[in-house]
Amino acid sequence: MSAAPQKVRAGAEKIDVTISAVTPLNELVTRFEFARSDGEPFPPFSPGAHTIVELNDGGRTRLNPYSLMSDPSDLSTYAISVRRDDHGRGGSLFLHRNVSVGDELTITYPVNLFPLDLRGKKHLFLAGGIGITPFMAMIAHLERMGGAWELHYSCRSRALGSYADELKKRYPSKVQVYFDDQAQSIALENLLNGQPLGTHVYVCGPKGMIDWVHSMTASHGWPEENVHSEEFLAPQPGKPFEVWLCKSDMLIQVGENESLLEAMERSGVDAPFLCRGGACGQCETNVIESEGEFLHRDHWLDDDEHANGKKIMPCVSRFVGKSLILDR
């Protein structure tokens, strides 16, 4: 049609925010609360949504996705909880060390890749560690709307169980917490067997836990559509490599502590993205030629696509080898 052509920018719309509170929850996890810098209310969001926080780390832009964990009905605040990753590329460390009340940042509009299935008669939540965050918003929402839910939350230890006490206290009959250091674990098989028809299962936590829930539900005959998962993927550091971008006609270097997507952005290439965590599919890029090995880490491409080397998700995946040419 082209009534009024506009160039589409990569990523979601943005909001300027000011840090309104920083609350350390335990040795590893800190909660950051935002208020809108223009004083307006935030847009409503659906529970399970994340936002991408833009950080200026010494002149270098870092874009990290975090689940919104505040009550979706409270439009004065958005909150995220961030686990410090001492071995990662530094985004979470930067937040923990350098960000304090009054600082101004930019975040994106909410994007939801882990929504509730609103047909669910009951919602069974399985959280591992920092995977608790999207469930905080889901619980607040279901409490308001009168939906049925139950949470099983597994943490390393009592000291590291973010929000565990608070949740247990508020909803004693709906929340069960398990501590690894006390050798407690979710009795998944029993739990699944006891669920009413029309229950939906949601799991958010480490990869092993997600795989476990998927294989257990599958072997118990649960329909795939009733099992939902979200894994927090952060790009991992790796050996530097070189890429030829043929549409942009340039050779770029991907450094040890940046992702391929970040390296493209640093070079001024407007590459598409949404989640930056290997889940949404927006940044999918065709490989023209390669000599070497792909380190695929996304959830988007299937096993065949991972094997045949024709596509890569530059937000989380890397490459080791002699040469890589991309259609970007």
């Binding site: 049609m1 009534a3 979601a12 599919g281």
Partner: peptide, 16 residues
């Protein structure tokens, strides 16, 4: 469909 699934809050689209 792929385009529609990725339409985000605050960024509506249109066609004729």
């Amino acid at each position: 469909l792929k385009f529609l699934l990725n339409i985000q809050q605050g960024a509506p689209a249109r066609r004729l």
